Computed example of a mutant assay.
Amino acid sequence: MANLPDRWRSGRFASPFREFSRYQDRMDRLMNELMGFREEGSPTEFDFSPSCEFSEEEKNYLLKVDLPGVKKENVKVEVDGDRLTIRAERKEEKLDESKEAKKRHLSEISYGSYVRSFTLPQPIDEKKVDAKFEDGVLLVNIPKGEASKAKQISVH
Rank of each mutant, 00 (worst) to 15 (best):
K144W: 06
S51P: 03
E56K: 14
K127T: 11
Q122K: 12
D130E: 08
M31T: 12
R18A: 09
E146F: 00
E93L: 11
Y111D: 02
F20D: 03
L84C: 02
F37C: 06
L30D: 01
R9V: 12
N60P: 02
G136A: 12
V77I: 15
K102V: 08
R87M: 02
T85I: 02
N74K: 14
F37D: 03
L34D: 02
Y61N: 02
E97R: 14
S15P: 06
R87W: 01
P16L: 09
E58C: 00
A147R: 15
R87K: 10
N3I: 13
P5G: 08
K91L: 06
L138D: 00
S10M: 04
K102Y: 05
A150E: 08
D25R: 15
D82E: 07
K76F: 07
Y23Q: 07
L30N: 07
M31L: 12
I153D: 04
Q24H: 11
K76N: 08
S110F: 07
K128E: 04
R83K: 15
S10K: 10
E19K: 15
D47V: 00
F48C: 06
D96T: 11
R9C: 05
I124V: 14
L63K: 02
E19I: 15
T44F: 05
Y114T: 11
E97H: 12
R22W: 10
N141S: 08
E78A: 15
M27I: 15
R83L: 04
A2K: 13
E78F: 09
I86H: 00
D135H: 13
K59Y: 05
F17A: 08
L106M: 10
Y61K: 02
A101L: 08
A150H: 11
L30M: 13
P50Y: 06
K149D: 04
S107F: 04
I109W: 00
V129L: 05
S21Q: 10
E19M: 12
S107A: 04
E134R: 14
D82M: 10
Y23H: 10
S55A: 11
L120G: 04
